[in-house]
């Protein structure tokens, strides 16, 4: 039951993000410390804005499971639930 409610909260926040789109969901604002928000920056770390939602989710799942090699993303991905990753990915997909 706790899980159902948590999932409902997750969906609600995705819906809210899609409608309002102003405020990033929990955790999303921190990503731009390393993932450049601006196209001006040269970095091996990819921009997240406008990326495919499913691709971001898959990357986070693979970092978390160890399927995908990482330097820090394995350690960071373990700090997020599936619902949070979905919300973050949905929000970045709508950003320019």
């Amino acid at each position: 039951m706790g899980r159902t409610l948590a999932a409902a909260i997750g969906l609600a926040s995705i819906a809210a993000a899609t409608v309002a789109s102003a405020e990033p969901p929990a955790g999303a604002a921190s990503c731009s410390g390393c993932h450049p928000a601006s196209t001006r920056v040269t970095s091996p770390v990819p921009r997240l804005a406008g990326r495919d939602q499913a691709a971001i989710v898959k990357a986070m799942q693979d970092f978390r499971s160890g399927q995908r090699a990482a330097t820090v993303m394995d350690r960071i991905a373990k700090g997020f639930t599936d619902e949070e990753v979905q919300a973050i990915a949905a929000w970045y997909a709508t950003q320019k």
């Binding site: 410390g33 390393c34 450049p36 001006r40 920056v41 970095s43 091996p44 770390v45």
Partner: peptide, 12 residues
């Protein structure tokens, strides 16, 4: 990555 982080965060 450390240098890239510095470029990114100072740009933001």
């Amino acid at each position: 990555l450390a240098e890239a982080w510095f470029r990114t965060i100072t740009d933001e």
